[in-house]
């Protein structure tokens, strides 16, 4: 049984322009200790998926269908009280902005000790000792001293390390990280992502890494879900998706990366842009931008076609995979 099993998840937000379906029957699973990437462009629904798992969709938005099974419980059915025992305990969250997690007026030590004591019967001294160990694990120099620092005394990279240390405090089974390094520089990003990779392996923690950065996903995750306009359009082993993508959207994203073509030449762009979720075209949501479109693409939403374990939502998936339609 997977650690997390998300099935037919549908999330809706009522808006002035009608109901916006941010996630449309989304399926994915995470096994114990597995690292899953969720990629897609801005507005594709990546963060909504994370918030839905944690039952944090803001009203009047709501989960309109589907189930989220985690360690044998359906999270969509839990009371607020029961959910508190899961969130921040069995499932930890890391956001792009560390200040979403850190309290600016408390020292790092106080925040870590309080987190530990909220979830475990433990004394102050013992909690402080565990906190310092965790700060050491995320490579914060002189962790004992740093416990007495306030968040503003740390650089952005250091703050994100502290957030990772806090995420690990309760020995969660799953960490959800939403663009954890997008605000950081490449050198710091590489340090922090390799650190997260290491920690997930040594602690056997599952990871959902949400990002629009295909390079980061390719080097950190084992499986990946590609979202487009709230739909899963391609999912499978990360290595296969990045080396041998089938869906025209995934192919377009990978081909658009600079460094793929010749320096100085025009980049391969995908024409048009993702539609607003209140006006997703009928049929395949990608059809107005697709070079392979045919009449059947406009008729109905294509099913997820299974190409031995690699699933693709495209009427021409088999042709494209076999190279008939190149």
């Amino acid at each position: 049984m997977p650690l997390l099993d998300v099935r037919d998840l549908r999330v809706e937000f009522p808006t002035r322009h009608g109901v916006l379906t941010a996630l449309h029957d989304v399926d994915f699973t995470v096994d114990r200790g597995e690292r899953l990437g969720i990629v897609g462009e801005s507005g594709a629904g990546k963060s909504v998926a994370a918030f839905a798992i944690l039952n944090l969709i803001s009203r009047p938005g709501h989960i309109a269908g589907g189930s989220i099974l985690f360690e044998g419980q359906n999270l969509t059915r839990l009371s607020i009280h029961q959910m508190r025992r899961v969130r921040g305990n069995r499932i930890s969250m890391i956001f792009q902005d560390p200040m979403m997690t850190l309290n600016p007026v408390l020292t790092i030590g106080t925040q870590m000790v309080e987190t530990l004591k909220a979830h475990r019967k433990i004394g102050d001294a013992e909690a402080r000792r565990i906190a310092a160990t965790r700060l050491g694990e995320v490579k914060i120099p002189s962790p004992d001293k740093r416990l007495d620092s306030y968040p503003h005394e740390l650089s952005g990279g250091m703050r994100q390390r502290v957030v990772i240390a806090i995420a690990l405090l309760t020995e969660p089974a799953l960490i959800i990280a939403d663009e954890p390094t997008t605000a950081l520089d490449v050198t710091i990003q590489a340090e922090i992502m390799s650190l997260m990779l290491d920690l997930c392996k040594t602690h056997g923690v599952g990871l959902i890494l949400i990002t629009h950065d295909l390079a980061v996903v390719s080097q950190v995750t084992q499986r990946v879900v590609v979202l487009y306009a709230g739909r899963v359009v391609e999912t499978g082993k990360t290595a296969r998706v990045v080396q041998d993508p089938v869906h025209p959207y995934t192919r377009g994203l990978l081909a658009a990366l600079p460094g793929e073509g010749t320096a100085g030449a025009r980049l391969n762009q995908i024409r048009g842009s993702m539609p607003p979720l209140t006006a997703v075209p009928a049929g395949c949501p990608f059809h107005p931008r697709c070079d392979h479109v045919q009449d059947s693409c406009r008729a109905a939403l294509p099913a997820l076609e299974d190409l031995d374990g690699h699933r693709v939502r495209c009427t021409r998936a088999r042709d494209l995979a076999s190279g008939v339609a190149a």
């Binding site: 490449v186 390799s194 390079a215 080097q219």
Partner: peptide, 18 residues
């Protein structure tokens, strides 16, 4: 430290510090 699409696992860039 340039992130590249690759099937190799992410490694630290080698220089510590902030």
């Amino acid at each position: 430290a340039i992130p590249r699409v690759s099937t190799e696992e992410m490694k630290p860039p080698g220089l510590p510090g902030e």
